[in-house]
């Protein structure tokens, strides 16, 4: 089997990306064009001062918990019960970012799919970060994390640069809250109206508490999120 499409495309990993909009749920394709799963979640690791993307996660253990809230937790527990003799069953399969080559409409690996999955560690997950409650400097609730923007860092890894915060209304994954030139007019107008309160905050001013599942901001944000490719 050969690579599906010959024309080279822009590699998104070399530019800022919005994790939920551009990376989550994309198809995983190996170096021979074979399909091996979806980006069911993304592993985040604290490296020095930065929160970096260190792996993509795939498989039921990652997907089920993204189905959300109590249902997600229950489904993960059920998934573990299906085979209690298997160690670390709730730990998702991971593919290290070293094995990732480029991102376009899919995520392409630089290796073959055979045996590429590992279950060797557990980190933070992007799917947990999105959906966290966002609190202002006085503890008042501002909204929820809708997405997280990453930019290429010092050692080639993608590091968190800002959070996109809104009211959690439907349609954030459609991308209209981040660019104003995407048609059709009807859908753009409705979705942008729903997301008129969506703002972007710099990662330095946000303190992420994974234990409480909240993000506390040092100042009240007001800047509207524009698209990194806009």
């Amino acid at each position: 089997m050969t690579s599906r499409r010959d024309e080279p495309r822009e590699n998104r990993l070399e530019r800022p990306i919005d994790g939920a909009l551009h990376l989550l749920d994309r198809q995983l394709i190996d170096c021979e064009g074979a399909l091996l799963g979806k980006v069911d979640d993304v592993e985040l690791t604290q490296v020095g001062d930065d929160l970096a993307i260190t792996a993509v996660l795939t498989g039921p253990a990652a997907l089920l918990s993204r189905l959300g809230g109590r249902l997600g937790d229950e489904l993960v527990a059920k998934w573990a019960q299906l085979k209690v003799s298997e160690p670390h069953r709730t730990r998702p399969w991971r593919i290290d970012m070293e094995d990732v080559e480029r991102l376009d409409s899919a995520l392409h690996l630089s290796v073959r799919r055979d045996g590429v999955l590992r279950r060797d560690r557990e980190g933070h997950r992007l799917g947990r970060l999105t959906g966290m409650d966002v609190l202002g400097p006085d503890g008042e609730r501002i909204g929820r994390v809708l997405d997280a923007r990453f930019e290429p860092g010092a050692e080639g890894s993608l590091v968190l640069c800002s959070l996109i915060v809104g009211h959690g209304r439907p349609g954030s994954l459609l991308g209209y809250d981040r660019r104003s030139d995407q048609g059709p007019w009807l859908v753009r107008t409705v979705v942008r109206r729903l997301h008129r309160h969506t703002v972007i905050v710099a990662a330095e001013t946000a303190e992420i508490s994974w234990a409480d599942s909240t993000v506390r901001l040092a100042e009240r944000p007001s800047e509207a999120p524009s698209h990194p490719f806009g």
Partner: peptide, 20 residues
């Protein structure tokens, strides 16, 4: 253009829950 079929797009644009 993108090599993606319909249900790839459904999941990418609606997320895993609504997509399911």
């Amino acid at each position: 253009v993108s090599g993606r079929a319909t249900f790839d797009l459904v999941r990418e644009r609606l997320g895993p829950r609504l997509g399911l």
